[in-house]
């Protein structure tokens, strides 16, 4: 019942958003400033029907996925080390603070000077997403329960058991929070970098071309696609998290013998 209510509220607020858009479009009465829902829906249908559509989507998705993977692996390794070794954490602090404070556009523009247009989204997304994930992982290591650690020592847990049954489960919530935030950020930065660097294929590049030709309905269509890609990424991530939790429970249950 609670779930139905929640979904109903979500549906009503989404409809309200569409209503505001349509009313705004009718009040402005300009297809360039803000086209209404029907022309954007029409433009979206045309876009999807065209052959390069999938190529554009896949190129952007691949860049986002690559950046995300690099962020997750590197930030986890560096974060764990920084959490364990205080001097490394102190040494990394100026880099992380700079990366957190630097405007995303500065990174993209600088990267565009240094690299080819295909590499810029990857590089920019990495630099923006890395500190977010790194901070979470480092915090997770620092917040490990010292009492449980002491218990593991006293009860002589094997290092592999300590890692599997204490450290990894304790770090999971930090890992999930960090990667979820990094994932949302990666989509935004990859598309922004594509807008500025205009690679051959990519959602951002198409958006930029539509904007130059004052095709606002197309810009909005690509924006909707970008929103859907981000939402799909989040859904996929949540599904993976649930699957992992489900599998862990299954494995745990298999490890419990019958008491009789």
């Amino acid at each position: 019942m609670q779930r139905v209510k929640r979904n109903l509220v979500l549906l009503i607020s989404s409809l309200l958003l569409l209503l505001i858009w349509q009313v705004g479009s009718m009040m402005l009465d300009s297809q360039i400033l803000l086209p209404g829902i029907p022309p954007v829906a029409q433009a979206l249908r045309t876009l999807i029907a065209q052959p390069p559509f999938a190529h554009n989507i896949l190129s952007t998705a691949l860049r986002a996925f690559q950046s995300f993977l690099i962020i997750v692996i590197s930030a986890t390794v560096v974060g764990v080390l920084a959490g364990r070794f205080e001097y490394l954490s102190i040494a990394l602090r100026p880099f992380v603070t700079t990366l957190k404070a630097i405007p995303v556009m500065s990174i993209i523009l600088l990267a565009f000077i240094w690299f080819s247009s295909g590499t810029v989204p990857l590089f920019s997304a990495f630099l923006m997403g890395f500190p977010v994930m790194y901070v979470q992982i480092e915090m997770g290591v620092r917040q490990l329960d010292r009492n449980l650690e002491q218990m593991c020592t006293l009860y002589e847990f094997r290092p592999s058991d300590k890692l599997l049954h204490f450290i990894i489960p304790s770090m999971t919530s930090w890992f999930i929070a960090g990667s979820r935030t990094a994932l949302s950020m990666v989509w935004k930065v990859v598309i922004a970098a594509e807008v500025l660097t205009v690679p051959r294929y990519g959602v951002g590049a198409r958006m930029q071309l539509a904007q130059v030709q004052l095709q606002t309905d197309l810009v909005l269509s690509w924006t909707l696609i970008a929103i859907m890609l981000t939402a799909l990424g989040d859904l996929l991530f949540d599904a993976l998290v649930h699957l992992a939790a489900y599998l862990k429970r299954k494995i745990d249950a298999r490890g419990v013998p019958c008491s009789s």
Partner: peptide, 11 residues
């Protein structure tokens, strides 16, 4: 009790 939260009673 200092039990591992993500492990079963048996584990």
């Amino acid at each position: 009790s200092r039990l591992l939260g993500s492990s079963t009673v048996y584990a």
